[in-house]
Write a protein that binds this DNA or RNA. Sequence first.
RNA 1: AGCGAGGUAGGGUAGUCUGGAGUGCCCGCCGGGCUCAUAACCCGGAGAUCAGUGGUUCAAAUCCACUCCUCGCUACCA
Length: 540
Amino acid sequence: MPYAEAVPHLGNFVGSILPADVYFKYLKMKGEDAIFICGSDQHGTPIELKAIKAGITPDQLSNEVHEKIKKVMERSGCTFTYYGKTHSESNKLTVYEIFESLRKNGYIVETEDTQAYCSVDDRFLSDRFIIGTCPYCGYHDARGDQCENCGHLLNPQELIEPYCAVCGNKKLEFRKTKNLALDLEALSGEIKAFVESHKRNNWTKNAINKTLSYLEQGLKPRDITRNIKWGFPVPLKGFEDKAFYVWFDAVIGYIGITREWSESQYLNYWKDPEAKLIQFMGKDNLEFHTMMWPGILIGAGREYVLPHTIKVFEYLNAKGVKFSKSKGVGLNMEGAVELLPSDYWRFALMYLLPETSDTDFSIEEFIEIVNKVMNDKIGNLVNRVLTIYGANRGMISGSEAEAASISKAKSIISEYIAEFDAINMRNALHKVIGLSELGNEVMSSTEPWKLAKAEDANSKKEFSKIMVSLRQIVYDLGIMLWPFAPDAASKILDYFGVDAQPKIKMLENVPDIDTGKPPKAIFSKITEKERKKFEKYIDS
RNA sequence: AGCGAGGUAGGGUAGUCUGGAGUGCCCGCCGGGCUCAUAACCCGGAGAUCAGUGGUUCAAAUCCACUCCUCGCUACCA
């Protein structure tokens, strides 16, 4: 779920929403009863602080950003079953219900801490609400949690001459305060058993190893409430002036948002023991999803399904720098879809999907993927097949295909399905590319343009068989491309008169090509001019 | 510092879990083919002590140990 502070950048998109959308589209192709739930994560300190600075309420700010994100994600070709938000009545209800269960089951404990207090604003200040001079580098605008200049992690007490970020008050007190925490220590045995029993379900290596290593080191209770005004108020005596901590209501938001989508249907999914919850995220979200989220669900009494698969991706970096919303580094999705069709981003980002290690995003590589892979391999193949097919329409008869190429195509298709079933989406994408390569190979080795000119019956028959095979390959390509590049896939399928959402089972029966539609390029290359525009975004 | 992840031809990557000839992909380079197609496409080739050292094994990129380098996380950023 994107944090509703700003529009997601490429790194956010590639690590969570895009793979989820691609996989969801595949599930729909298979005809599975799947829903794709996502939403804006609205609570927390950064949003509250940003809203105060902007002179609006956090509610307003996060709702405005939420609307923007929703629009951009739709423009990026994402087809959510529902895109909701965490600051909703449905989520609030769900958070309260789960909190109550956790409390009843004895997993909520009290913690005490010392925290800065501003008497002018009459509030406790989160670390980020305190500004001062960094004791390590002397930077004047260091925050209480970290110095942005030297990167040192800080305690608010370390800051020299700290002041309140809201009102500038320099007379801060440090007071004791109580919070509620989830007793992860008590739950750690069950969390470990959960990870052990689920890790074979296509979890990524980092998700398994990092989690087991945390568990090995031992978990401590972790706060679920904070002295903050923005969030759901805590419904417990003595804690009414506090709000739930954003991570708590964000993960519960998966349920809450499904509930917001459909009060009558959400439990059909969340309480179905056969349901599989599959989650995609960047590595910064790992511990929330592999430990705390299962911990919440287990502690609340295992009423809801626990994650079946957790896919944790590494970072996509821009020129070695992490894309950052707050620092304004890199390209956000709004700029991206403004610049180029969403299919290009979807395809290229899935191609670059940082599965095992951080990956650099460079313009050169992106352009290479679009121009060389999408255009030259896939786009060009479609075009050349359609052209030769249309020009020799009368010579193609029956459905007899050239056996060798069809059997190769079939094995690529089954590999594609196997990769997708194992949620290895980048590998699945390579199978799509592989199929286009097969098409190009068949073309070169059989030279149908020569056969088309021949007079003898044998050549004519051979030509027909080859074109039937190529027709099959292009059609299959249109279907298989759909999760990655839905617009381009629709363009290909349109030549076959198909305008419905593709299904895996459609791969078997190829309709004839509608030669009334002249072949048009389904992709076009990124020009020098577009490249220049592009560089403006990346260079910062 | 602790923990996690990476280090594979000139560049970028996959393969590592589950050991089987350095096997694959993209770019670049060299040679050839083709002219249906988007100056594209196809075939062949050169190029790698698989970070290093030691070990296990009939066999190691893959398993084990140690070392070096890069990135990330370390609990009030989410």
